[in-house]
Structures are given as C-alpha cells and as structure tokens.
Design a protein around this nucleic acid. Sequence first.
RNA 1: GGAGAGGUGGCCGAGUGGUUGAUGGCACCUGCCUCGAAAGCAGGCAUACCUUCACGGGUAUCGGGGGUUCGAAUCCCCCCCUCUCCGCCA
Length: 438
Amino acid sequence: MLDLAYVRDHLDDVEAMMRRRGMNPELSEFRQMDAERRELIRCSEALKQNRNQASEEVARLKRGAERDSPRVAELIASTRAIGEEIAGLDGQIKEIEARLEPLLLTIPNIPQESVPVGTSEKDNAELRRWGQPRGFAFEPKAHWDLGVELGILDLEAAVKISGARFAVYRGAGAALERALANFMLDLHTRQHGYTEILPPALVNSKSMRGTGQLPKFAADLFQCKDTDLWLIPTAEVPLTNLYADVVIDEAQLPVNITAWTPCFRSEAGSYGKDVRGIIRQHQFQKVELVKISHPSQSLDDHERLTRDAEAILQALELPYRVVSLCTGDLGFSSSKTYDLEVWLPGQNAYREISSCSNFLDFQARRANIRFRGGSKGKTALAHTINGSGLAVGRTWIAVLENYQQEDGSVLIPEVLRPYMGGLERIVAEQQTRSASKG
RNA sequence: GGAGAGGUGGCCGAGUGGUUGAUGGCACCUGCCUCGAAAGCAGGCAUACCUUCACGGGUAUCGGGGGUUCGAAUCCCCCCCUCUCCGCCA
C-alpha cells in the first residue's frame, strides 16, 4: 500500500505509473472522496471538541456545590444532541473510508527508476548469464519423460489421489527433492547468514493482507473452508509477517531469515500454460529468503539476496541468466524484481526458478513493520525484500534435464551427493512402477 | 471441547465512570556533575489522523468490534488471543 498523503499529492504520477504497468487506472473518484472525507473529519472533530468541553464542565459542576444547578441538565441535553450529530458524521466517514481504502489497496507499488519500461516479459532486460548450456550428443528429454521412465515421478498416481497439477515423487526422486532443500538451507544458513525458520503453512487473512496477497489476489489462493485460514502461496507470507506490528532495533537490521515450506497456488487463469510436466503445480516446495532492511540499505540488500539465490545455481553448476522485470511484468507489490531463469535443455529455454523483489516500504506499511533508529529514537517503516532461494521443484527439474545421460540415467551434482547417501547416479529400477497401474 | 484467570505505551507494571494519554520502573535521548565514565540530579521520550507556511492546536487509540452514558481503560454484549486446571490427542 502506498502512503495516502503521497497518492493525494501525486495522483497524476500514480496514474502514469499504473499505465506504465499496463493497467487502466480508475482514480478519478479518489480526489473527491479524499476531500470529502477530510471535510467530514474536520466537522466531526470540531463537534467532538465541543462535546468534550461540555462534559468537562459537567464534571466540574458535579464535583462542586452547583451539583444540581439547572445548568447541568441543560449541558447534558445539548451534548446529547451533539452526540447524535457526531454519530451521523462518523457513519458517513466510515462509509467513505470503506470505498477509499479498497481503492488505495488496488494501487500497485511504484517501480524504481532503474526498472525497464515495457508491456510484457519480452521487454524484460537480461542483465547477465552464468554457465554454458551443455552440448548434447543426443536429443535431451524433458523431465516428464525422464522422470517417469526413471520411475521417480508418477503423475498418473497424483491425478488419481488429487488431480491435475500435482505430482508424486518416488524413491530417489523424493530423496533428490529433500537433498536439494537441505543443501539450499545449509548454504544459506552457514554461508549467507540467514536464520532458518519453520513457519506455519496456514495463515490468517491479516497476514495475507500484510504481504499484499489479499484483497486483490484471493482467486490465486486456497482457503480452508469455514475458517479464516489460507494455505500459503509462498513462505514470504509467514516470514515477513513474523515482523508485523514489530518495532525492530535498528542494530538488528537487516533481518535475514529463510524457510523451506510447501507452497499452494490455485493457478486460476493459467489454464493451458505449462500443462506438461511439473513446472506449474498447485503444491510445490520452495526455500524462501527474506530480508528486512534499513531503507538506506535495501537496494544493496536486494542485490545481495539475489546473489545468495544465484549461489545455489552456481554450486549446482546449472546455467542461468538474470533478468530485470519490466514495468508491465512487475508484480503488484514489487518496486523491482530480478528473475533467475535456469536453462532447461528439455525445453530448450531459460525458465524462471527464482524471483527476487524489493518491496521498499509497500509491504511494511500494510504489515506495520518498523524499526527504531538514530539518536532521536523515532520509528520508521522498514523495507522488505524476498526471493526464492530456490524453488525446489523447479530445481529438481533442472537437475534432471541438465544432468541427464544418453542411457536415460541422471548424474547427481557433486554437492548433492553427501545429501543422498553418496548416490552418484539415478538409474531406472525395474521394481519402481506406477502405483496407479497396480 | 469444559472451568477459571488475564490482555494497558519499546519492555515491565499501576489504575473499576469525570484534568488518566494514562502513576511508577526499565530502556532510550539531552543537560548538570566528572579529566572521562559510572552513580546521582534535572528535563525529555507513544501512534495515527485532521489542521497550520511554521510554532502550535484538535480528534482518536488501554486485544478487536458493538452497546450504555453528557462523559468509558474502568459498566454490558460478541469475537480473538495468552495462561492454569480438566478432557482428548500425534
């Protein structure tokens, strides 16, 4: 959420910004509602001042000898009338705020100056590449073939027990997912200074509002029936909201935390996209990185967090590139986002495996995340940054496709072998068949 | 799920209808003292909104929401959360 006063003073800029994001801003009502609201508040508060003064006088009279003077009854009667007037005005204020706030909540964050202007992912700017896509002496397979043939991925079984966009991993496939997560957590906690958190996977609506998923993106989420609980779409939600309504000591900044959690997305509106394989799932696992930063440091911290995520890909020796999302592709709450895209030989394309965003104070304002700093001891809104470090399911895909061998086996990256009991290669096992085929 | 106790400022903790936005302590800031520091002393120190060029003024906020009243941290109702005991349970 942007600052109300900022929007008021920069309405034209805000509308222009929304157009750069490819939106069609409808802020015409804003100015009038805002002015009306302020006028109502002024009237109401003036009346309240009258009432308070009258009440004080009643108290003074009642304490003294004039306890029963007619003046008291007179004051009480007139104040009661004022009270009714106030109630009317306050009702109007509530009503107008009920229309104003949703409007404010649908205004996205302001992209940083350095964000490329554009309308779609085609306008994203590639910043750098790392690693060289491997040359294959054979036609590399896609993970949905490789995984099924190796008996480590069972999509039919997933359809039977849950439905489309779910996966069942078996044997070395399940172990590979766990190894990747452990490796990522260990690297981030031991070398990058993050503290590991194990948060709830279900959160309340207040938390979803705090990080911006609600009210605008309810359709993308799963909600538990008859409760106020939602399945997290990313650990960003519980991790960032750990600091909701908290005043952090300035010396503690930046806060660096990480968590490995399941993530749940309804993927509404993504019909027809990535239907093959397990690129896009209703449930997947992700190691998330979150930094809560001092405003003066957040741009640097965003770069740092991105490098922390890149370090995983480098350690796994997976080729990737870094792109800066353009204004049209930028997420609602983000001021700037770097996507890490890993090379997938089975698809002959770079595909997103991490998204690292700086939200500035946009989330902090909603979630009320502050720090106390300086000699004045004043509080100010902190900045929040997060990124995947990495999406474990997609890393699993990248390992399979990049490390596949001509005989259909998959080599295990060196750094993962200790996490897989020394296993060096995943080979098809005759015994491993789809449970759904009985 | 049942019974009881409680939720007050960054933290601790007073306060049961009328100068209580809220005693006191801790933490923090400033000044005095000191060669310097500690201790001591004096002062300051919540947030949001409205208003003002500014100084300032005003309103609201004592878990959340509603109600009673001229007036609510204080009384009533609903909800949330924490703690203790019981029940259940991985």
